[in-house]
Amino acid sequence: MKDLQEILAIARAVGWGAADILRSYYHGTIKDSDLEVQYKQNEPVTVADIAVSQYILENLQAALGNEDFAYISEETYESQSKLASNYVWIIDPLDGTKDFIKKTGEYAIHIALVKERRPVLAVVVVPEAEKLYYATKGGGTFRETRNGSIPVQVSSGKRIEDLTLVVSRSHRHEKLNYLLQNLPCQNQKSVGSVGCKIATIVEQQADIYISLSGKSAPKDWDIAAPELILTEAGGKFTYFDGTPLQYNTGDINQWGGLLASSSEYHEILCQQARDVLAHSNPSS
């Protein structure tokens, strides 16, 4: 098997190629670029999702094969069973499809390599910002543009009251709103895709992201790549009880409460989230 840096170079190249395809659909420069929006389990899917999924899978498989790696992509995943391979690619070809359709610019591409249920390599591309974030386990996080790459770090030194929560425009429900209203930090910034939210934290424009499953939960492909981008930039991303996230477990849903932060107050915020929910009884 190739070493991790060789694999990372392949994943970054695939990420940029996928970004070019999405931008061509987004800006209508591709021939017959009607998005042909369909709905799968109440979530929108476009021809762009399908085209980019196919591009990423074909190019990773051409470069790396199927012998050492298994592949999970949002647009091709059907089975609930855990893939037996030691290394599994977990891919979201278009995270933030609603934002893509609404033209907010806040959509992203997630490519993560998971080994034994934990991410070891991640690429998150924000096409409209023309930025690609990449990380390897123990290797730090970098922001890459067409002109090169530089390391990025989360912010530090703020008071807990001055922290900014990055929140969704959609995927809101009463229980989550109640939780957010009862935390000590009340600054909020609305951003689309999870990848874009985590990019906002590593760019020091926000400090916290919270996901609380309601009738649905985020999937492995929503979280795996952004998690490693954040943690290698000095942040933390755990369940509310502090335990690490697990991927390729046989259940693609990340149920319960997840908290991502710039880390200084991570344990305090997790405890406060648990306390707020323990004393709440809103319908959700």
Rank of each mutant, 00 (worst) to 15 (best):
T164S: 08
A278S: 15
A48E: 06
S156T: 14
K103C: 06
V126F: 03
S53Q: 14
I229L: 02
L64K: 03
A217R: 05
Q246F: 11
L269D: 03
Q153L: 15
I7W: 01
G257L: 12
R118G: 10
I223D: 01
V152S: 04
Q54N: 14
P93V: 09
S79N: 10
V52S: 13
N177D: 15
E74R: 01
S156I: 07
L179W: 03
R146M: 13
G96Y: 02
T249A: 06
G195S: 03
D3W: 04
L22A: 13
L57V: 12
V114H: 02
T141L: 04
K102W: 01
K115W: 00
S170P: 01
N187Q: 14
V88A: 07
L22Q: 12
D220Q: 05
G157D: 03
K175N: 09
E232M: 00
S283C: 00
G250W: 06
I268D: 11
E43D: 14
L269I: 11
D220T: 08
I7Y: 00
S73T: 11
A273C: 15
W89T: 09
L35M: 08
P44N: 05
H171W: 12
S33L: 00
I201C: 01
D34N: 13
G256L: 07
D92I: 08
I198S: 02
G148S: 08
E267P: 00
A260T: 01
N147G: 07
E74C: 10
T136Q: 07
Y26E: 08
G148K: 06
I21T: 11
C185T: 14
Y133I: 03
S24E: 14
A51K: 13
Y178Q: 07
Q205G: 10
Y26D: 05
Y239M: 11
Q188F: 05
S262M: 03
T141A: 10
A13L: 13
K197Y: 05
V166R: 09
S81N: 14
G250N: 05
Y87E: 06
